Computed example of a mutant assay.
Amino acid sequence: MELTINGSRHQVDVEPDTPLLWVLRDTLGMTGTKYGCGLAQCGACTVLIDGQAVRSCVTPVESVGAAAVTTIEAVTETPVGRKVVEAWVDRQVPQCGYCQSGQVMAATALLMQNPRPTDADIAAAMVNLCRCGTYNAISAAVRRAAQA
C-alpha cells in the first residue's frame, strides 16, 4: 500500500484494516501522533487527511487511499500550522503535553477551514480532551493564531 504522508510517498506492507495511527507510529516511526483511548474519543491521535482533522486510531489505513496525510512532524511546513505552533508557544499551552499534538492538529484544521473563528466555532472544533485542563489556554492560542 502506498501513502502520502507529510508530502512524501511511503510504501507500507500492513493489513488493510490496520489503524493509520499504528502505521504512523510503528511502521514509519512517526511517534509525534499519540495513542490515547483507541476509541476516537480523546483526540490525541488527530492527524489531517486532506486538511480535515481525523482520529487516526480508528481510521483504517486502506481508507486513506491517495489522500494527503499531515502529522505533527510536518504541521509547521504550512503557514497556518506554523502560526498555531507559534501561538501554542506564546501562550505556553502545554502542561504535560501528551494531548498537544492532537490539539495542534485540530486547531490547524479549524483555521485552515475558518481563518476567523468565533469563540463558538473554537468551542465546537476543539473537542479533544486534555487531562491537565488547559482548555482556556488552548482557546486563547487558537484566537492568537487566528489574529496572526
Rank of each mutant, 00 (worst) to 15 (best):
T31L: 10
W88Q: 08
T31G: 11
P16A: 06
G65S: 12
E62R: 15
D119L: 15
G133L: 03
V61A: 11
M112E: 14
H10P: 00
G102P: 01
T71Y: 09
Q147S: 15
P79W: 05
V89L: 13
G51N: 01
V54R: 08
I49T: 08
D17Y: 14
S101W: 05
Q147T: 14
A87L: 13
I122T: 01
L39H: 15
T78N: 08
A40Y: 03
E86R: 15
V75Y: 13
Q100H: 06
N6W: 07
V12N: 11
T33C: 03
V85W: 07
C130V: 04
A120D: 15
A109E: 02
T108V: 07
I122N: 02
V64I: 14
L110I: 09
N128G: 14
T4G: 02
Q92P: 05
Y35M: 08
A87F: 10
L24D: 08
V61C: 12
A53K: 00
A107N: 00
H10Y: 08
P115E: 10
D90E: 13
V12Y: 07
G29F: 13
V69D: 02
T78R: 07
C99W: 02
T108A: 04
C37H: 03
A53T: 05
T4Y: 04
I122Y: 09
L39K: 14
T46L: 04
L20G: 00
S56T: 03
R116W: 03
G97M: 09
P60R: 10
Y35I: 04
R25H: 01
A137R: 15
D17S: 15
T4D: 02
I5A: 01
T18C: 12
N114Y: 01
L129A: 07
D119V: 09
I122W: 07
P16C: 12
M30Y: 09
V89P: 00
R143F: 02
A123F: 01
A40K: 08
L24P: 05
A44R: 10
L111H: 05
N136D: 13
A87G: 13
T18S: 13
P94M: 09
M1K: 03
D50T: 06
T70C: 02
A67Y: 00
Q95M: 10
E62P: 01
A106W: 00
G51E: 00
Q103P: 04
G65M: 11
E86M: 04
S63Y: 12
